[in-house]
């Protein structure tokens, strides 16, 4: 299953990789902390930052300059809705330069366990509120696959691979944009409640109506829970 998804992703990238397309490369570390709140509820707290290292236009010289772009803090409450699925809702606040953005998040996730891997589907919607009273609506779908590199399941002290593919439909006033994300990651499980992942978060946006914008974020994700 991995191979067709990777090939599809590369096909999308190669099709839209054109001159005049802008790109940026940087770092995107995040920390996720989850804790139970009783009666089946769980709270996830996340902090994520984005730091650009270089940017430019394909075919031209790049501009290498460090820029701290933004910091996100989010709190999402989730509850199991069935054996394999859960619903969640929460809030994110984004600090970017002098701008503060508020976002509401709703999501439904289904996780299925197969013989040698786990597959998750996440359906989400978020509403971002900007200064001036405007709002952006995004409807999202993400497919994630976690494959152990040793044995039939990921156990403590073992590495694994994870692959995310997400599609975000963004509606802002009269504009529409589609963003595609392809995220290959390598992970290590210290314990079931402590995992570290490292990889590339590739994002392609703006190609529906304009030249594409390619973002390459080197990502470190730390997941801890109690």
């Amino acid at each position: 299953m991995k191979r067709p998804v990777i090939l599809f992703g590369l096909l999308i990238i190669s099709f839209y990789l054109a001159a005049q397309d802008r790109y940026q490369v940087g770092l995107m570390p995040s920390v996720n902390f989850s804790t139970g709140m009783g009666k089946g509820w769980k709270m996830n707290l996340k902090a994520e930052s984005r730091q650009r290292l270089l940017q430019g236009t394909f075919g031209e010289e790049s501009e290498s300059e460090y820029d701290y772009i933004l910091t996100d803090f989010s709190a999402i409450a989730s509850r199991k809705a069935g054996l394999n699925n859960s619903i969640a809702g929460g809030y994110l606040i984004r600090f970017r330069d002098t701008t503060v953005t508020h976002r509401l998040i709703q999501q439904f996730t289904v996780v299925n366990r197969f013989d040698n891997f786990r597959l998750a589907q996440r359906f989400a919607a978020d509403q971002s509120f900007f200064e001036g009273g405007t709002m952006e609506l995004r409807l999202r779908y993400r497919l994630s696959a976690e494959v152990p590199l040793s044995g039939q399941s990921v156990d403590p002290g073992e590495f694994y691979l994870k692959f995310n593919n997400e599609y975000l439909n963004a509606f802002y006033e009269d504009d529409y944009d589609l963003e595609i994300r392809i995220v290959p990651l390598a992970g290590y499980e210290f314990t079931d409640n402590n995992k570290l992942e490292f990889g590339l978060d590739y994002r392609l946006s703006g190609f529906v109506n304009n030249s594409g914008r390619h973002s390459f974020w080197i990502t470190f994700n730390w997941f801890i829970s109690t």
Binding site: N44, I76, R122, K162, F223
Partner: peptide, 10 residues
């Protein structure tokens, strides 16, 4: 007991 799914959910 299901193993932790935080890295697949969030």
């Amino acid at each position: 007991i299901h193993s932790n799914t935080d890295n697949l959910q969030f």
